[in-house]
């Protein structure tokens, strides 16, 4: 599933990043958004977008359209 479809509090792991936008992809990689990395959605902004996620022990915000490029799976 896409990260944008994950509801807050769910534990997920990144499978891969989309290839569509090279610059976005590189930026995400630089920020530590890598495959295999656990990531949690902390909350959604009051107006419904962007999202706040926690990864590698810090907080990151990204828009839903950017979160669309991040494929994740639920960690059981």
């Amino acid at each position: 599933m896409k990260l944008s479809e994950v509801s807050p509090g769910m534990k997920v792991k990144i499978i891969r990043l989309g290839q569509g936008f090279p610059a976005l992809r590189k930026r995400l990689l630089d920020m530590g958004v890598l495959s295999g990395e656990p990531i949690t959605v902390e909350r959604v902004a009051p107006l419904g977008d962007p999202l706040e996620v926690k990864i590698k022990g810090y907080r990151l915000s990204l828009r839903k359209e950017e979160a669309d490029e991040i494929l994740v799976e639920v960690v059981s």
Binding site: F21, A23, L24, R27, L28, M31, P50, E52, Y58, R59, L60, S61, L62, R63, E66
Partner: peptide, 10 residues
Amino acid sequence: EATFFVMELP
């Protein structure tokens, strides 16, 4: 020109 909102919340 692409713009992102990939931003740290310090």
